[in-house]
Design a protein around this nucleic acid. Structure first.
Lengths: 318, 318
DNA sequence: TTGTATGCGTTATCAA
DNA sequence: TTGATAACGCATACAA
């Protein structure tokens, strides 16, 4: 590989001048700058990352810790984080904690040892994070005291419920999947807030109780708001199995606006988090923190938006 | 942060001895080794990654380039690669090329500049890779001359077809999604090979022609082998929409064994690639290549297995 | 404007 | 068995 020394030798200059010419920091004559630039170009010179990191103390690498990259929402975050980081000159090292508390802690220490400048963490549900020796940004939910930025799950829940209310529904199933998840609890709470005194509803956590969609429909339920697209998909296919039509007999909404929403039919309406913006803010926070900003932004929350597709409609009167 | 020098000063030793004691390479008295180890432990000493990388020329970081981490199959690979790499002491930097040819090339150069020791690449379909200056392993398909290791898509296609033949089906729909994908072409070719002279079949590429599952069923088709779980899911929901029962009226099989297979009902039968093994071999290849092995393993292909769930059954006679 | 010198933390060579 | 020292490639304070 070519190095500063290489260029300096070729041109009969000192490494310092070459370094200055390339960085534009020191004072170098235009003539020298030009020669250096052209030679660097010829050689395809790229600064050695390790040397720079050693000298400056910054690796320009971030670590991204997440519970399970196989989960489509986390994958979206990975994509967002990677592109936001790239935009400001950082690379990202991933660490899948495989949905395991020890895994999460181990992943963090591994990354720190690799010399990352900061960490973005999507914590495993129910886990508690201990403050680290390096800057970190947490993407979780409003109720997490460590939260840096996240979707506004509560508002998302409200918006879902309000949208269906406007369509004329007045008897709801609110469907949770994992009763330990703060994110899901906030979504459900938002739904309940919007619905209280406005409509009848029943909340069921699928991890605690079997759901029988046929009976629920017989009881008069015309709309299901599921806490994730995956549960929504699950309900949709069960409904199909027992002969219920969507959206004629049942409107269904999911959360997260995953790619599958568009591959199934009817296409699934969903609440979309602004992943790009969440990722951007997480990275911005991290950069500030790395650069030693005296005061950092407070925990922030980004509104979700309703993506209307074919799984929602006004209830058909009978 | 603590350093070798720190430990050396504390103990009145030279850095060299401390380094040797810690690495176990040089000859150091047991007494000194013991003192060094205990002091290092007290200080929580971790070697500085940048310094080590600078000195040794190895960053112990690999780059993983993939078309779209949002796609569930690629996410599975990301997980497999990360854990296989971790197992042999490598970290992995991700680069999502966002399904864009330029993006792919740019991602590769970015990673090289960051000083990765090698690259694992899942190429964008239809793209051609140029050999790089650093070791690389390619995960694609048998027909790619650069392929290092991949699933045996052809055998997977055959196995899918054979399994349904055994169930008694004799009229098939072979469903492709992207006619430019080598992977999909090989899967379809495998199906056709197994089916020729054994059964009737019709091959349709969904990117070229609209599919009307009701009519196809009327024509006598009782089984659909889709080239991916996503297309299978798509067909399943369309079938449900027109009142076809699965698996009574139609058996459906997908490919890749994605997590969604289990969230829908009926649960989807699928052909599973051995992602762990593919990832392991890719990493193994890369390690050999990085360590300068004189001869590297030839391109290899790993058989797929049939995961039987509820979407497949013997056809019901009428 | 340019060059010299030093150090970042580690490994490795060579003397002592 | 241990220690002094150089080198990896770069950035910077300082001298020329």
């Amino acid at each position: 590989m070519s190095s500063l020394k290489q260029i300096a030798n070729d041109l009969g200059l000192s490494v310092a001048s070459v370094s200055n010419a390339l960085s534009g920091k020191g004072r170098v004559s235009p003539a020298v700058t030009k020669r250096v630039l052209s030679r660097a170009n010829e050689l395809g010179y790229k600064p050695n990352a390790a040397a720079r990191a050693l000298k400056t103390g910054r690796s320009h690498i971030l670590g991204f810790v997440l519970p399970d990259i196989t989960h489509p929402l986390f994958a979206k975050f990975a994509q967002g984080i990677e592109s936001a980081a790239d935009a400001v000159g950082y690379g990202v090292l991933i660490a899948d904690s495989r949905d395991d508390g020890n895994g999460q802690a181990a992943a963090i220490t591994r990354l720190v040892q690799r010399g990352v400048d900061g960490l973005v963490i999507v914590p495993r549900r129910g886990s508690t994070l201990t403050a680290q020796s390096i800057p970190m940004a947490v993407i979780n939910s409003q109720s997490d005291p460590m939260n840096t930025v996240s979707a506004n799950h509560f508002q998302g829940g409200m918006l879902a419920a309000e949208t269906l209310l406007k369509l004329g529904h007045n008897h709801f199933l609110l469907l949770g999947a994992d009763s330990l998840s703060d994110v899901q609890k906030e979504r459900i709470a938002g739904m309940q807030r919007a619905l209280s005194d406005q409509a009848k509803y029943k909340t069921i956590w699928a991890d605690k109780m079997k759901i029988d969609i046929a009976t629920l429909h017989d009881e008069g339920i015309t709309a299901v708001i599921a806490v994730s697209d995956l549960s929504a998909l699950n309900i949709m296919s069960s409904a199909h199995q027992v002969g219920l039509k969507i959206p004629e007999d049942l409107s269904v909404v999911g959360f997260d606006d995953l790619p599958i929403c568009k591959v199934i039919s009817p296409q699934l309406s969903s609440l979309a988090p602004d992943v790009q913006e969440i990722a951007r803010q997480a990275i911005e926070f991290l950069c500030l923190s790395i650069d030693g900003a005296e005061q950092l932004p407070k925990s922030n929350v980004i509104n979700m938006s309703f993506i209307s597709r074919d799984s929602t409609a006004s209830p058909t009167r009978k």
